[in-house]
Nucleic acid binder design. Structure first.
Lengths: 197, 197
DNA sequence: TTCTTCAACTAACAGTTGTTAGTTTTGCTT
DNA sequence: AAGCAAAACTAACAACTGTTAGTTGAAGAA
């Protein structure tokens, strides 16, 4: 149906501009009138396309979450060592972020403005995702790839801290490619865990 | 003067509660009426103690900034290798954060809501601080402590990403002490830079 | 007791917020 | 040319925003 395509396309346009605005000013400080102005329309006109301000945030957060999960599921299927899974997981995470740095920044910084029950659901997805990375580290310790005396919680939080700030300082005009960036990051972060043989 | 002492103490009480609120809800989503309620007074009464909402944020951000700078200045004085300076700088940074996790979280997440010219001033302090850490890394490369092919910008951004998220997940009830946490973090982050001899 | 100072109060302001209801314009399809 | 749906519009709402002006009660100093 042409109608669906058209309306979806306009709706997505609204959501993309909203993502830019949310990243720039933060969700709370960004008003619907700001958003409307960016699109050259009146604030009330936005509601032809979206149900509420929060629906935009929900869409942004959960769409990104789905992409991260899909990327991780691919890695888990592979028949490789735990440390290699960790490496591929990191690269995958970076690639997903690089595909949409704006949405990634919103995903990471603004999700807390979701109201219940969306917030609870989001946090559950998130902790699950993190725990699966933590599992890679624990498996790596068990197999002797990684040091025995690692604080796994500390390690995994450090890992995600590094990854999640990336969209705030990485610029798409940079000469470094996402794949390359992911590899460098993975090397840097994993070397701290590895045994020194 | 007794008056000054009393008013300062009450003012600081207001600022501390504000820090909790700003961390919890974000600066923009936190209203002066929320803050007043937390203190058990009316919103208008806050203005006996502070000039404006933004003055609170300014105080929080610049007080933290001063502590970080003081800590770094101490490290730079020492007569040790670049990699050791980096290590001590990281530990110092973590210790300053651990002294006030709430203010640290605000410092890191909410500073962007400062208006000009405070924002500009803040960002200049920040870039200066980061560049001095970057210098440690470059010195470490020059002296052969660190690998030659390191992307120093990437390395320093990764470092601060890890450090800056800490106040969001570190809980004061944790068994791990700040000094110990700082040491572990420093080891983990620096091992990725070191030569494998 | 009277004076002073602090820290709270009430009342109100002008502006902004997300959102709604109902209407008009636009551009394609028949 | 007529009909239709998408996408915009105007006008308005109730609630909330940071902040001000002026006032009052309590506590300690003179």
């Amino acid at each position: 149906m042409a109608e669906t395509v058209t309306s979806l396309s306009r709706k997505e346009q609204v959501i993309r501009k909203a993502a830019e605005l949310f990243k720039e000013k933060g969700y709370s400080a960004a008003s619907m009138r700001d958003l409307a102005q960016k699109l050259g329309i009146e604030a009330a006109s936005l509601y032809s396309h979206i149900k509420s301000k929060e629906e935009i945030l929900r869409t942004l957060c959960f769409d990104m979450a789905a992409e991260f999960r899909a990327s991780l599921a691919e890695v888990e299927k592979k028949q490789v060592s735990a440390s290699e899974k960790l490496r591929l997981g990191i690269i995958g995470h970076v690639k997903v972020m690089a595909k949409d740095l704006t949405a990634s920044a919103v995903f990471m910084n603004e999700h807390r403005h979701l109201s219940q029950p969306s917030l609870r659901e989001f946090l559950l997805l998130r902790i699950n995702y993190i725990n699966r990375f933590k599992q890679f580290i624990e498996d790596g310790i068990a197999s002797g790839d990684f040091k025995k005396n690692i604080d796994t919680k500390l390690a995994v939080m450090t890992l995600f801290s590094s990854l999640n700030w990336m969209p705030l300082w990485f610029s798409p005009e940079s000469t470094i490619e996402p794949e390359n960036l992911g590899t460098q990051l993975a090397d840097m972060l994993i070397n701290g865990l590895k045994q020194n043989p």
